[in-house]
Design a protein around this nucleic acid. Structure first.
Ligand SMILES: [Mn+2]
Ligand SMILES: [Mn+2]
Length: 549
DNA sequence: CAGCGCCCAG
DNA sequence: TTCACACATTCAC
DNA sequence: GAATGTGTGTCTCTGGGCGCTGCC
């Protein structure tokens, strides 16, 4: 049973957000934002309530006759007050399409003296009204009888406050509610009061510009070349001082450039890719250069990537691609095939289960077999290093609603915590050490949001069995690889873990007919080979029903 | 009137 | 604020 | 075999109301 919230819960949360931002960032707020904050603070409680209610909703315009909040006594008075303090605008001039959006289909029909057939869809009705309002003798004043329209003001100010509070724009006031209802739980790390996430107004504006660009084009697949280039030039410049923004801008740039490739604009795509180092920008540049026939440039860039790869994908890409390119020119011999993992084939009757589950059932006849994919090893990793992940490194935690430290996705996340990580690896000398730490953390932290352990997918008994069967050296080898590049190695782990009745264990990657090993799966298997971690690929062949029933 | 998608509240 | 994986298609060798 | 695109399940918290569509 969820706890009950106070009737003014949302106002309390809003105040908490505002004062946190003003306390921390007063010097970075612009005059508009200060004035907005002052006007809100001076409003009556009823007016504040109404304002926060409306600010929490997705649209910007509301019909007053549709609003009804139990805790607001005189809604009309509150609206009038907000209008006076310019936090709302009563009856704004609205473009017809936005105005029509506030009324249901029946009301729109009633506003037409000569309405079309009722079978007309809402969409067609609205389109028709916009194209030719006179055709159906549409009378806008008939809509006004439903009462005044409220337009919310100051949304952009609140956007800035949200950005400063959360560090992003996808979290909002509902995060407070979800926490207070116990629906999400965050680790109680120490929030860093001394290190600010934003250091200058320019930095804030850069984030806002990025988010504005992103908001214009949620689907880059639909855009033409001109729009893609315009969007790119509208993006804020990035330098090394704001890696979080650089990551987002880089990601978006790659998306724009990839679409330019699809539109057969390779030169423009190259230019965009060249503005970011975020993978796979360099890999895409190599491919585009190769396709354009500029082999020398492609090879040079391959060398650059190979000598300083930014992630595992880059490392795996550069050399083989360069070899293929050379071979095409007849400059080198064939590429030696990389070592192949142990592969076996089994025959199973078709089932309604997924192929992974079918094989799990089959192998489970001997001992037990579990469909864990990435969840087991990443989950144990998260538990073994839990306190280090949430350790109060300067600038890691800015608000109580983070599932991970701010720098978790940065390449230097581990180097920043290197000493603690090395100590932990050192301190875990026996399998019992590891088991105790992992299970204790599992019990103590169960359900808390975190970046590595996906609770619903992690079964405690399976976890315990894995800790009993997998030697410490193997855990170490997996942890070390994850630590080398968390983003690249958090995926690609085998589908199943098999615990035969006789003891030991084996990791099993299942492949249905037509499916093949992916790059990240091969990468892990190379690592398993190196460390003697038992694994195999099971290819399934479906039994052909030759015997009639 | 069932089914859907969207929006909202807590 | 997706992401990870499987599966389909196309092309080239 | 390589590359690309697409689909699916899983995430975000969940139940309820509303507006709309389409079928009977
Ligand atoms: Mn899988
Ligand atoms: Mn598989």
């Amino acid at each position: 049973m969820p706890p009950e919230l106070a009737p003014d819960y949302y106002l309390t949360n809003f105040h908490a957000l505002l004062s946190s931002v003003v306390d921390r960032y007063a010097d970075l707020l612009d005059p508009d934002e200060h004035a907005w904050h002052t006007r809100f603070s001076q409003a009556s409680v009823d007016a504040q309530c109404l304002y926060v209610r409306l600010l929490s909703r997705t649209k910007s315009h509301f019909r007053r006759d549709k609003l009804d909040y139990a805790e607001i006594d005189d809604l009309a008075a509150a609206a009038a007050e907000l209008d006076k303090s310019r936090l709302l605008t009563l009856d704004p001039d609205l473009p017809l399409d936005e105005q029509l959006g506030l009324y249901i289909k029946g009301e729109l029909f009633e506003a037409c003296a000569k309405p079309p057939a009722k079978t007309l869809s809402r969409e067609a009705l609205v389109t028709g009204l916009i194209e030719d309002p006179d055709a159906w003798a549409f009378d806008p004043s008939a809509l006004a009888t439903h009462g005044p329209i409220l337009q919310i003001e100051g949304e952009t100010c609140f956007t800035v406050f949200r950005l400063l509070f959360f560090g992003n724009l996808y979290q909002d006031l509902s995060d407070f509610v979800l926490r207070d209802l116990g629906l999400t739980a965050f680790e109680s790390y120490t929030v860093d009061a001394d290190t600010r996430a934003f250091h200058s107004r320019d930095q804030i504006d850069a984030h806002l510009r990025y988010h504005a660009c992103r908001a214009i084009a949620p689907e880059t697949r639909a855009l033409d070349a001109e729009t893609l280039l315009a969007l790119h030039s509208a993006l804020p410049p990035v330098d090394g001082s704001d890696p979080a923004l650089a990551r987002r801008v880089g990601r978006f740039t790659n998306e724009l450039a990839r679409q330019l490739e699809r539109l057969d604009e390779p030169t423009h795509a190259l230019a965009l890719y060249a503005t970011t180092t975020r993978p796979p920008a360099r890999e895409r540049r190599v491919r585009v250069l190769a396709a354009l026939g500029d082999t020398d440039a492609a090879l040079a860039l391959c060398d650059e990537i190979a000598s300083s790869p930014l992630d595992a994908d880059e490392a795996d890409f550069a050399h083989p691609f360069a070899q293929r390119l050379l071979r095409k020119l007849g400059r080198r011999g064939p590429v030696p095939a990389p070592a192949k993992p142990l592969e076996v084939e089994i025959e199973l009757p078709e089932t309604t289960l997924s192929v992974e589950q079918a094989v799990a059932v089959h192998l489970g006849c001997d001992g037990s077999c579990h469909y864990v994919e990435n969840t087991l090893f990443t989950g144990v990793f998260g538990l073994a290093f839990w306190d280090i992940i949430f350790s109060p490194v300067p600038g890691a935690f800015h608000n109580p609603f983070q599932y991970a430290p701010a720098d978790f996705r940065e390449p230097d996340f581990c180097t920043q915590r290197h000493a603690a990580i090395a100590d932990r690896l050192d301190a875990v000398q026996t399998r019992d050490d590891l088991t105790a730490r992992v299970l204790d953390t599992f019990d103590a932290k169960y359900g808390l949001a975190n970046p590595m352990t996906h609770w619903p997918a992690l079964d405690r008994d399976t976890l315990q069995l894995a800790l009993e069967r997998i030697p410490l050296a193997h855990w170490h080898a997996v942890f070390t690889q994850l630590l080398s590049d968390i983003a690249s190695y958090r995926a690609g782990l085998p589908d199943l873990i098999h615990f035969p009745a006789a003891g030991h264990y084996e990791l099993v990657e299942v492949k249905a007919p037509g499916d093949r090993l992916q790059q990240n799966q091969l990468r892990w298997m190379r690592h398993f080979d190196k460390h003697g971690i038992p694994h195999r690929v099971v290819h399934v062949r479906w039994t052909t029903d030759t015997v009639p029933a």
